[in-house]
Structure formats: C-alpha cells, structure tokens
C-alpha cells in the first residue's frame, strides 16, 4: 500500500480540568480513505475530531493535517478541510441557500464561484426544491443534507463528519452513506466519528476503536474481524437458569477448542476454533450442569464481537458511558 498520509496523530492528549478525555493517541489516516473513530459516548471521539479541525488545542502531543500542524498552522488547516458538526448546526431563520452563501463568503470565494458550487451541491444532496425555504421547515434528514452541503462547499481535501447519521431514519442513513461513498470516489478523504457498529463496518475502509480515551484497536473491518480468529458461538439460557451461567463458563474455560468466553445478559458468547468440534462439547457440558440451553447459534465474528474483545464491554452498554460524559 503506497498511500500517502493525510492525517498524522502522535501521542495526542487532551485534559479538561485535570480529567483526561483522550490519552496518548497515535494513528495515521491515509489519503482517500473513509476512516472512522468508533466508540461509545464519552470515549473521546469528538474531542479527537475537534482537535483535528483546530477547534480545540491539545494538551500534549501533536497532529498534522496534510502536513500542517493543527495548532501552529491552524489557519492553513482550516482552508483544506470541511466540517459537518454533530448537532444540527443550522440557523433556522436562514434558507438553505443563505447558509451556503454565508459559508461561501467565509471561505472567501468569489460570488460566481460560490453560486456555481452552491448550484452543484444543492443538486448533489437533492435540496434544490427547498433551497429557498427557511431551515426551520426542514426535516431532520434535510437538515443533515444541508449540513453535508455546507461541509463540502469549500471543496475540501478532507471532510470531517461528527456522527453523521445520529438519530436519522434508515432511509436517510443509507442516503448519507451513499454520499460519503461518492465523496471517496472523488478523492476526498473522509474522517468520521460514529457509535454505530454497522456504519463503521459497512462504510469505512479503516477504523479505530476508541474507548476511555485510548485506541483499543485499529484496522479495516475485515482485518479486525479475522484478527479475532475463529467463530462466535452464542448461547442463550432460560431466565430460570441464569445462575448456572457462571459455572457453565468456568467448566468451559479449560476445553481445547474454546478461545475466549464473555458473558452477556442472557447467556454467553464463546469464541471457538471450529464450531463443529466446539458445539457438541458446549452442549455436553451444559447438559452435565443441568443448564437448559434455550437457543444456540454460531456466526462469523462481527464488529460487535471485535468491540467486546478489545474493550471488555458492548458499545450499547451506554449508562456508565453516558455518566462519564456528563
């Protein structure tokens, strides 16, 4: 792979009032790829993104965007990037076209250039019909499309998307994924944060799993999944038998075909070498312990399994994570 480096992050750290939001992050993003920072709320994704787009100063370490330091050369970085914020950062009183005209002036485009790009972008995101309506009449999906058009107006080399499909309905999500893929075809590097596993899995070329301010794993979805080795056998027990899950896990631990065991609320996820050997063994142990198996299935590793394997918890256990953020 002889791809050049678009973003180089080295030992990046950010502390708020003595509490570290991110610590010692190092990674590289390649030119032309779709890269995701995947993690639960409060993991440090947005902090990292904000440092890269020059809105936050890191407390330690450094980052360069296309060779320009995000602190010392912030103005230069701002000229090369587009940003689509997480919140619907829309002025409800302005029309879609007025948003884009405003940004055209902030990027110092000439009037003609601005109008040309606006016409093209409105067509791309399919907002031509609503362009002259105030944004307060827009649906969530339309606001998101306007957001993306705003991010693309400067013709950026790198587009940053903060949780691009958060809270959108399925159709709008697929639509946004489609745009993002089109951007890659045009040669734009896309950097996004997400806490949706399927989004990271289906859309991204590479991703970094970030949790508690640290990078836990980095690679393409396929690499990460095959890196786990083996398949996942998922055992669900009857609710009356939940107390037997622990002894079952203990008894399975020593078996040769079993690699790792993690508990889930309804039973166990068991990482195995080959399901043909492991399945009978698991059933046999469950039988011996009189632990009634309600449901058993096996599947190739999914990104959820990767996430659990590297962080020790599921991405949707959101209550503790949400508290951290507050």
């Amino acid at each position: 792979m002889e791809q050049s480096v678009a973003i180089d992050v080295s030992k990046l750290g950010k502390t708020y009032d003595g509490v570290a939001a991110i610590q010692d992050l190092s990674f590289q993003i390649r030119t032309g790829e779709i890269f995701a920072l995947l993690g639960p709320n409060g993991a440090g994704k947005s902090t990292t993104l904000r440092i890269l787009i020059t809105l936050l100063r890191p407390t330690s370490g450094q980052a360069t965007v296309l060779g320009h330091d995000v602190v010392r050369d912030a103005d230069h970085v701002r000229r090369l990037i587009g940003y689509v914020p997480q919140e619907r950062a829309i002025d409800r009183f302005l029309t879609g076209r007025e948003h884009l005209l405003l940004l055209g002036d902030l990027y110092h485009l000439s009037k003609e250039e601005s109008l040309r790009r606006i016409a093209e972008l409105l067509k791309l995101v399919d907002l031509e019909g609503k362009a002259d309506q105030p944004a307060k009449t827009y649906s969530g999906g339309m606001k998101r499309k306007l957001d993306i058009a705003c991010g693309l107006l400067p013709n950026p080399k790198i587009l940053f998307l903060d949780e691009p499909t958060l809270g959108l309905d399925v159709q709008s999500r697929l639509r946004i994924w489609d745009y993002v893929r089109q951007l890659r075809q045009r040669g734009i590097t896309v950097v996004m944060t997400t806490n949706y596993l399927d989004e990271a899995d289906q859309l991204c070329d590479r991703l970094a799993i970030i949790d508690g301010g640290h990078i836990k794993a980095l690679g393409s979805p396929t690499e990460l999944k095959s890196g786990l080795g083996g398949d996942i056998v998922s055992v669900t027990v009857g609710s009356a038998a939940l107390a037997r899950v622990e002894p079952l896990a203990a008894a399975l631990k020593g078996l040769p075909s079993i690699r790792a065991i993690s508990a889930k609320p309804t039973g166990l996820d068991i990482r195995v070498e080959s399901p043909e050997k492991a399945l009978p063994a698991i059933l046999e142990v469950a039988n011996r312990l009189a632990c009634p198996v309600e449901f058993i299935e096996y599947h190739r590793p999914r990104l959820d399994d990767v996430f659990v394997a590297h962080t020790g918890h599921a991405i949707r256990e959101e209550f503790p994570a949400a508290e951290e953020e507050a």
């Binding site: 904000r50 787009i53 020059t54 809105l55 103005d75 701002r78 000229r79 990037i81 940003y83 914020p85 950062a89 829309i90 002025d91 940004l103 902030l106 990027y107 110092h108 705003c150 400067p154």
Partner: peptide
C-alpha cells in the same frame, strides 16, 4: 453554529 463558523478560515 459557532463551531461551524470557527472551523472556517
């Protein structure tokens, strides 16, 4: 919106 403005040059 302020962040959006401040991310421009």
């Amino acid at each position: 919106f302020l962040e959006r403005l401040m991310s421009t040059p």
